[in-house]
């Protein structure tokens, strides 16, 4: 018996993010203010550095509470030990902190550096491109042919029925039309740019330098990388490399399932990780922090 923790990325941004930062823990709120300014929590979506640091601070705050609860006899009795942790995209930094590989305050600072790289090394190509979520029961069978015909790169392999593509606006328009012709669903995403694709090559080196400057430790809980769908080995290479490469989330979940967890915990906020887990590994039930609180 055991549980696997899943940490979301930027897919779902809570409206009360600033308040959540302040509630995430004194050390996290202090690290956030230290790096970004005391007022940064008032408007955490003002820039990428604030937003990414805020999401990681909130994720770590919630994850730490989950780990604390999982140490209590009643919760541990119901859910068992923590087998592994994984995070989706930005959520990897949250996961590394929860797994003990990175101090929480260093994780918040690293997330801010990662976010700042999106501004400092912004490429003009990004303005002509974006991301498109394509979903439907046949999407895994059809996506290779769609990309071969219309262009674009697979950015997120999220679930058996959902992928996200990075492409130019023209390619996205053509992919949208063709996907709907094929009875697939297609939704353009509001994003910082065409993430997890070769468009992001300009930020890999600066983010790698930031990761190399962060004091890492040996993880106490295995943390899985979305770049390799396996436990992290090369932290600077993998944390920076995934920016310009596909998030192999579906495969990561399938690997995590081989640990035979009895539950997946969506650290939250939001329920996106639970939804993707249920689609990919339907036999393993998902729980939230609220479920742990009431156990």
């Amino acid at each position: 018996m055991g549980i696997v923790l899943l940490c979301p990325g930027q897919g779902q941004v809570p409206r009360d993010l600033g308040d959540l930062v302040l509630a995430s823990g004194d050390d996290l709120a202090a690290a956030y203010a230290d790096k970004l300014g005391a007022d940064a929590h008032l408007d955490p979506l003002k820039d990428f550095a604030r937003a990414q640091a805020a999401l990681v601070a909130v994720g770590i705050g919630r994850g730490r509470r989950a780990l604390e609860l999982l140490q209590t006899p009643s919760v541990r009795g119901e859910y068992g030990e923590v087998l592994a942790i994984a995070g989706h995209s930005l959520g990897e930094i949250t996961a590394l902190a929860l797994g003990g590989a990175l101090d929480a305050t260093d994780a918040v600072r690293l997330a801010a550096d990662r976010g700042r790289a999106f501004e400092d090394f912004h490429s003009p190509d990004w303005d002509a491109a974006g991301m498109l979520a394509i979903s439907g029961p046949t999407v895994q069978d059809e996506i290779a042919a769609l990309l071969a015909e219309y262009g674009g790169e697979l950015a997120n392999d999220n679930a058996p029925d959902q992928v996200v593509v990075s492409a130019t606006h023209e390619q996205i328009a053509a992919l949208t039309t063709e996907a709907r012709e094929r009875s697939l669903r297609a939704v353009r995403l509001e994003t910082t740019g065409p993430g997890h694709s070769s468009y992001m090559a300009s930020i890999v080196a600066p983010v790698r330098a930031a990761v190399e400057g962060a004091p890492f430790h040996a993880a106490t809980i295995p943390v899985y990388s979305g770049l390799t769908a396996a436990p992290f080995i090369d932290l600077p290479g993998e944390v920076s490399g995934i920016l310009a490469n596909q998030v192999r989330w579906r495969e990561t979940l399938l690997e995590l399932a081989t640990l035979e967890p009895t539950h997946f915990l969506d650290v939250g906020p939001g329920g996106a990780m639970a939804r993707l887990a249920r689609k990919t590994v339907p036999d393993v039930p998902t729980v939230t922090l609220d479920d742990l609180e009431s156990a």
């Binding site: 328009a173 949208t176 039309t177 709907r180 669903r185 297609a186 939704v187 353009r188």
Partner: peptide, 13 residues
């Protein structure tokens, strides 16, 4: 809400 986002984009497209 995701359905509403997609529906809005379909009507625009």
């Amino acid at each position: 809400s995701l359905d509403i986002v997609e529906l809005s984009q379909i009507l625009e497209d």
